[in-house]
Design a binder for these strands. Structure first.
Lengths: 136, 136
DNA sequence: ATCCATGCAAAGCCTTTGCACCCGA
DNA sequence: TCGGGTGCAAAGGCTTTGCATGGAT
């Protein structure tokens, strides 16, 4: 993830991707973002979407959510908060829980590690999937 | 992940995979497990390794760690505990921290969700990577 | 003018799957 | 014997990358 670039340019594509991602709270996948953006820029390529999502998350503008298989999801809200992931449909929801403070300090046995942060994620069945599981 | 099988058989392959995984605390990837097992069973296939890891984690014998990109890692210790992941090399380490109790109960606003559990993971530079980052 | 970014398509990486044969219970 | 399991190889899903062209500063 080391970039040798000296600066970043704000292109129309990057701008629109960021705008669209900020509009929603659904934590879309790259492919879903591609679909959203294409409504405004039909000729954008999926590669461009991937490249920009990578750069934007490097810049701290957005956040990449990696748990849950190969399919990454993206969060337009880069401030620290926790998530709930549906193990059935894979969707990710925001959760309003106080950030756990001082957790890093408890890691006294983690000597030599440089702690950068933590992530807390709940596994669950979302309301939709809980419903359809019952019906089956 | 719904299995229609009525029972599972303990084959030599499944047995060896489980044994090897239990031997280490390095949370190896499927490919690394493949390499370990192949020393004892040179003719085993990677597909078999994947299928068995899936089944063993369904059975609750092992645990699948999904955070951190496409590459899944596996934990021979299925009891609940937390991890530290090195953002540089991707390796996963165990952490000895009291399980957070009653966290699920705080999710009063998660109405309609069926909470199954939670995972807490610290992002860090491992001692090795912290060292080589300094040197550069 | 410079050099980062784009579009397109190909390649990559990890994982899953189809199929014929094998083997554990 | 019976139905799950295996090896092999091909296919799959998501992501990354090479290349020539385009565009922001």
């Amino acid at each position: 993830l080391q970039t040798t670039k000296t600066q970043f340019r704000m292109t129309r594509q990057r701008e629109v991707i960021l705008e669209e991602l900020r509009k929603v709270c659904t934590h879309p996948s790259a492919d879903e973002i591609y679909a959203m953006v294409r409504q405004r820029m039909p000729r954008i390529s999926l590669g461009t979407v991937y490249r920009n999502l990578e750069i934007l998350s490097e810049l701290g503008e957005i956040r990449k959510l990696e748990s849950g298989g190969c399919l990454k999801r993206f969060d337009g809200n880069a401030t620290s908060h926790y998530h709930i992931r549906c193990v059935e449909c894979g969707r990710v929801f925001d959760i309003h829980l106080q950030p756990l403070e001082g957790l890093e300090k408890q890691l006294d046995q983690a000597q030599g590690f440089v702690i950068l942060g933590h992530s807390l994620e709940f596994q669950a069945l979302c309301p939709d999937c809980a419903q359809s599981t019952k019906l089956n």
